[in-house]
Computed example of a mutant assay.
Amino acid sequence: MLLIDRNCVRELLTSEHPDATLVFVRGDCVVLPAAEVDDAHKGLVIARRDDVRRQLPAGPLTDEALDDLATRLDNIVRDLGS
């Protein structure tokens, strides 16, 4: 079971915040403006939208591309627990 799924990635990419950041908090992915990520949660930052956009293929955003990116981000979350 993925901890980060396509909906988390989509929420990050479509957030109204220009500095949207994906944070994993208490088992959930949460999208916050970077300024709202406090010291207690800085170690739980998974990705920033600008970084994620650079990893997307050119062209339309497909479910397959979102799933691929979600899997990579999910691996980051799992590495945090190691």
Rank of each mutant, 00 (worst) to 15 (best):
R54I: 00
R72I: 01
A65C: 04
S82G: 14
P57F: 02
L12F: 04
R48F: 08
D51R: 02
R72A: 11
E16G: 12
D28N: 11
A35V: 06
G59E: 08
L80A: 12
V77S: 10
V9G: 08
L12A: 09
F24Q: 07
K42Q: 12
C8H: 12
N7W: 11
R54V: 01
A65T: 07
D39R: 11
R10W: 11
H17L: 02
D50P: 03
Q55H: 04
E36R: 09
V9Q: 12
T62G: 02
P60Y: 08
A35E: 14
L22D: 06
T21F: 04
D19F: 03
V37M: 13
V52D: 05
I4R: 09
L22K: 02
Q55S: 14
L44E: 07
R72K: 10
V23C: 09
D67V: 07
R10I: 10
V25Q: 11
D19N: 02
P33A: 08
G27I: 05
H17P: 06
V37C: 12
R78W: 03
I76K: 15
R26N: 14
R10F: 14
L3F: 04
L73W: 05
D39A: 13
D39K: 08
N7F: 14
T14G: 12
S82E: 13
D39P: 01
A34C: 02
L80F: 14
P60W: 05
R54C: 05
T14D: 04
V37T: 11
I46T: 06
V23Q: 13
S15Y: 04
L56P: 08
E16M: 06
D19C: 03
C29T: 01
P60H: 13
Q55G: 12
L22C: 09
C8A: 10
P33V: 01
R78S: 15
T62I: 00
D51G: 12
V37Y: 14
L80P: 14
I4H: 14
A47N: 09
V45Y: 14
A58W: 08
V37F: 04
A20E: 03
P60E: 13
V37G: 15
N75H: 08
P33M: 01
N75V: 00
R72N: 10
V25S: 04
A20F: 00
L73C: 05
L32F: 01
T14E: 09
L44T: 04
